[in-house]
Amino acid sequence: MKKVDLPLLRDASARLLFLMKEEEYLTLLEEFKILVKQMEKIGKIEGLEDYEPMTFPFDVAIDELREDEPAEVLAREEALENAGSTYMGQIKIAKVVG
């Protein structure tokens, strides 16, 4: 596991595209200590590796797919009415390079 320290937390939040208040990074560091300790404890629970990682709590498998029939098209004005920056029927953002 990566070592958790302040630079790592700053980098992680930057990659998530937000900045945090300075004291929040310290709170987070404390929270990480607790979480990592508890997860280490969980790792020591006997027989854990015998279990497959669970996403679905019981057998939820289905055998059907969506029929390929068009529906639900939005009018362009509708599609864009919640966007803060539009131009000529499209969303306008700063120039994307690369």
């Binding site: 029939e69 068009p70 639900e72 098209v73 009018a75 362009r76 599609a79 499209q90």
Partner: peptide, 21 residues
């Protein structure tokens, strides 16, 4: 006829943002 995960039409040549759900 439709997209991978939505029922919006899958068309290549259309006015921008008119084949969207």
């Amino acid at each position: 006829k439709t997209k991978m995960f939505s029922s919006a039409p899958n068309v290549s040549l259309k006015e921008p943002n008119t084949a969207v759900t």
